[in-house]
């Protein structure tokens, strides 16, 4: 028996919004410790990893490890039927070929349930090595979304250059060039408005706008985002999911041909 109840059901709705453009289908691995999802986009350029800790749920039970393969378009359609303030419960029997989503209004006066077929997905899992990144940039998630959107007008790629002076995002194309520089904030009223740069060595890498823009669909999940970079390895874009977990996007850099 698997059962996970989340009073703050809107978080699950936001997680789906954050992955459904990038992934058509994916497996949710349910275990005693919580729920995880790892999947590559169709082109194998990026990898998404979602981690939801068991303690983050208001009720969590997972008697046997369970892999629930889902069509994410279908899952998203079902979650759209939940109101933002609904309590969401996911339920499945051991070895079941369906999962049930239960939505309860806060007053408990409306209860809906939707059953969805599970899929058998043969997906590769990749081992992500523990990495000490040369640069870790924390910035407001809305600011990052704005930067990616604005620079996408100029070209297909964004160059992210992190140095002790700050971080510079650049794009170049037919209409011209754009540069956005952010310095570390000296003092802020709210922690979530801060730009914090931890740098061991300067790093400059180039990434596809299309993917960065898809990652920013996670913006409603968290007021802050962190970007981790080291030379010649994938960028990690990480958002926390309330206090129940996090979503990480890994994006392979563009390299010299």
């Amino acid at each position: 028996m698997f059962e996970a109840r989340l009073v703050q059901g809107s978080l699950l709705k936001k997680v789906l919004d954050a992955i459904k453009e990038l992934l058509n289908e994916a497996s949710w691995d349910c275990a005693d410790s919580g729920i995880q999802l790892q999947a590559m986009d169709n082109s194998h350029v990026s990898l998404v990893s979602v981690n939801l800790r068991a303690e983050g749920f208001d009720k969590y039970r997972c008697d046997r490890n369970l892999i629930m393969g889902m069509d994410l378009t279908s899952m998203s359609k079902i979650l759209k039927c939940a109101a933002n303030d609904d309590i969401i419960t996911m339920k499945a029997q051991d070895n079941a070929d369906t999962v049930t989503f239960i939505f309860e209004s806060p007053s408990q006066e409306k209860v809906s349930d939707y059953e969805m077929k599970l899929m058998n997905l043969d997906q590769d899992h990749l081992g992500i090595p523990e990495t000490d990144y040369a640069c870790v940039i924390k910035l407001p998630s809305g600011e990052f979304a704005r930067i990616c959107r604005d620079l996408s007008n100029f070209g297909e790629s964004i160059v992210i250059a992190c140095s002790k002076e700050g971080v510079k995002f650049s794009a170049a194309g037919d209409i011209g060039t754009g540069n956005i520089k952010l310095a570390q904030t000296s003092s802020v009223d709210k922690e979530e408005e801060a730009v914090i740069i931890e740098m061991q060595e300067p790093v400059t890498l180039t990434f596809a706008c299309r993917y960065l823009n898809m990652f920013t669909k996670a913006t409603p999940l968290s007021p802050q985002v962190s970007l981790s970079m080291s030379p010649d390895v994938p960028l990690v874009v990480e958002y926390s999911i309330g206090d129940i977990g996090q979503i990480q996007y890994f994006l392979a850099p563009k390299i010299d041909d």
Binding site: H125, G127, S157
Partner: peptide, 14 residues
């Protein structure tokens, strides 16, 4: 000119 690399170039299959 830069070309897009694949994530599988960096992370191996488990």
């Amino acid at each position: 000119k830069k070309k897009q690399s694949n994530i599988t170039n960096f992370f191996s299959k488990k």
